[in-house]
């Protein structure tokens, strides 16, 4: 199958240093030349050269982090999905994390415009010793009619397998004809953000500290909780992207200062 955009990345460890050992891209996907963060983490930016996602587009991203390697990946800009009159946009991502690896994925928000239909399926296969950071957020695009939710349907599925066993299954679907504003749904908000961090040192006590830390400066509508494996899920509802980004940045900083003992990744945007 030919994709609108296809990307394959592989990171390996060579003489104590993580390097991008292989990269393939085709269609509208490109990557920046890898840079190194202050912590010697290779950082790659994903670039979509087509400007936005349109009717019937298909995307596949595959990232393989080999033994001991670390990799940080971000998007260059937000993902914009436009109208899909005939066929929805499908985006798949497959991440494979071998033993003692780190993958940090920071995605810019998905902006869904009028009549957009988009499905994203992310599958992660990781070793128990690996760690994984992931953000995902959905923003309704501007529409000239002033509709709060101009899109038709946005679906995002995340499945994480640890040592072959399904441990996280997150399934979000935003369908404006199902009264998204009501209680239990978006509760008067328009934006949703999710953050996952899986690491062997995440405990109930660590999450309590994170909760106290976030509560000290933020009273937005969010929740954090321990997953079935050592790891945390944060979910936030907001009326603006900047609030979600602020919380994500705070969690990232907390993670890096308490667990990695280093400053947060500077994503260089």
């Amino acid at each position: 199958m030919t994709y609108t955009g296809h990307l394959q990345l592989e990171a390996s460890e060579r003489y104590g240093k993580s390097v991008l050992s292989d990269a393939y891209y085709n269609g509208v996907f490109k990557i920046s030349r890898p840079t190194y963060t202050d912590e010697n983490l290779p950082l790659v930016q994903l670039i979509h050269v087509g400007g936005g996602y349109v009717d019937g587009d298909t995307y596949l991203t595959e990232i393989h982090v080999k033994n001991m390697a670390k990799l940080a990946v971000t998007t260059q800009a937000s993902t914009k999905v436009y109208k899909t009159p005939h066929k929805q946009v499908m985006q798949r991502a497959l991440y494979k994390l071998e033993a003692n690896t780190e993958l940090h994925m920071k995605q810019d928000p998905l902006i869904a415009y009028k009549d957009a239909r988009f499905t994203q399926e992310t599958e992660v296969h990781m070793d128990q010793s690996a760690s994984f950071f992931f953000t995902d957020s959905v923003t309704p695009g501007w529409s000239k009619e002033g509709t709060l939710f101009p899109f038709t349907c946005i679906t995002s599925k995340l499945k994480v397998y640890q040592n072959g066993r399904l441990v996280i299954f997150d399934h979000l679907r935003l369908k404006p004809d199902e009264d998204l504003m009501q209680l239990l749904q978006l509760e008067g908000n328009t934006h949703v953000g999710s953050l996952f961090f899986i690491h062997s040192e995440v405990t109930v006590e660590w999450i309590q500290k994170l909760r106290d830390y976030l509560a000290s400066f933020c009273d937005d509508q969010y929740g954090v909780s321990l997953l079935q494996i050592p790891g945390v899920c944060l979910r936030i509802l907001a009326k603006r992207t900047s609030l979600i980004e602020k919380i994500f940045a705070a969690v990232e900083e907390f993670i890096h200062s308490t667990i990695y003992n280093r400053s947060a990744i500077s994503w260089r945007k």
């Binding site: 997150d170 979000l172 749904q185 978006l186 929740g223 954090v224």
Partner: peptide, 19 residues
């Protein structure tokens, strides 16, 4: 394929219950 679609506000309320 529709199995497991969550309600984000409810999930946040479930998380906040811990506190």
């Amino acid at each position: 394929t529709e199995f497991g679609i969550g309600a984000p506000g409810l999930e946040i309320a479930q998380m906040q219950h811990e506190a």
